[in-house]
Computed example of a mutant assay.
Amino acid sequence: MIEVKFRKDDHGNLLSFEITGHAGYGVEGEDIICAAVSVLAIETVNSVERLAGYQMLVDEADDEGGYLYAEILSEREAEQQYITQILLKHLFYSLEDVAETYPDYVSIQMK
């Protein structure tokens, strides 16, 4: 199962997300759920860089896969913060849709 954990601050702003595990829905390389979650997460990190103009702090397990952690920088301009929150909320809602469609394969937590 893929587990996604989002962390937010006291104001409801998303600060980070962590994705662990494998869906196990299909064979490796053909698992559409893993592919969907991976694309959404990686493109969110890439979009923050392209649209907000900074790189998130990222940790990933390249050799075995199944792990991605991304955290926003604490020092951001107001526009960067605004763009980042839109992108992270889009990720949250998109992953929530995947989890609702495939509840046995994806779970989401908000801390």
Results as ranks from 00 to 15, higher is better:
54 Y>I: 02
110 M>C: 08
78 A>Y: 13
18 E>I: 06
33 I>R: 05
82 Y>L: 13
107 S>V: 09
99 A>R: 06
8 K>H: 08
52 A>V: 03
95 L>Y: 00
71 E>T: 10
89 K>D: 06
53 G>N: 02
3 E>C: 11
107 S>P: 05
78 A>M: 14
79 E>F: 14
70 A>S: 08
79 E>T: 15
4 V>T: 07
27 V>E: 14
48 V>D: 04
84 T>G: 07
84 T>I: 08
52 A>R: 05
5 K>F: 11
7 R>K: 13
74 S>Y: 13
73 L>C: 11
70 A>Q: 09
68 L>F: 02
98 V>C: 00
64 E>A: 13
85 Q>L: 10
35 A>W: 07
83 I>P: 07
46 N>Y: 09
56 M>C: 07
13 N>W: 07
72 I>E: 10
45 V>P: 04
108 I>Y: 06
111 K>H: 11
105 Y>G: 01
95 L>G: 05
100 E>N: 11
70 A>M: 02
80 Q>N: 12
93 Y>E: 15
81 Q>T: 14
98 V>H: 03
59 D>M: 06
62 D>S: 14
29 G>D: 09
86 I>Q: 09
55 Q>E: 03
82 Y>F: 15
48 V>W: 06
76 R>A: 12
99 A>Y: 08
95 L>F: 01
62 D>W: 10
83 I>F: 05
71 E>W: 11
81 Q>M: 13
34 C>F: 05
21 G>N: 05
99 A>L: 05
111 K>G: 15
6 F>W: 02
81 Q>G: 12
35 A>L: 09
76 R>L: 13
59 D>S: 11
9 D>T: 05
38 S>M: 12
5 K>H: 13
17 F>A: 00
69 Y>N: 11
45 V>C: 10
83 I>W: 08
102 Y>D: 03
19 I>P: 01
18 E>A: 06
30 E>R: 13
17 F>L: 03
61 A>N: 06
28 E>P: 07
99 A>Q: 05
22 H>R: 07
47 S>G: 09
18 E>D: 12
45 V>H: 06
61 A>M: 10
29 G>H: 00
92 F>I: 09
97 D>F: 06
22 H>S: 06
48 V>M: 03
72 I>C: 10
74 S>K: 13
63 D>V: 02
18 E>S: 08
1 M>K: 08
85 Q>R: 10
79 E>V: 15
22 H>L: 11
59 D>R: 09
96 E>L: 09
6 F>C: 04
15 L>D: 06
93 Y>S: 15
98 V>T: 01
51 L>G: 02
87 L>Q: 03
80 Q>V: 11
33 I>D: 01
53 G>W: 05
32 I>K: 10
35 A>Q: 10
94 S>Y: 03
7 R>T: 14
19 I>A: 00
96 E>Y: 04
34 C>V: 04
76 R>S: 11
102 Y>P: 11
30 E>N: 15
95 L>V: 02
44 T>C: 05
16 S>H: 03
34 C>G: 00
14 L>Y: 03
66 G>C: 09
82 Y>V: 15
100 E>D: 12
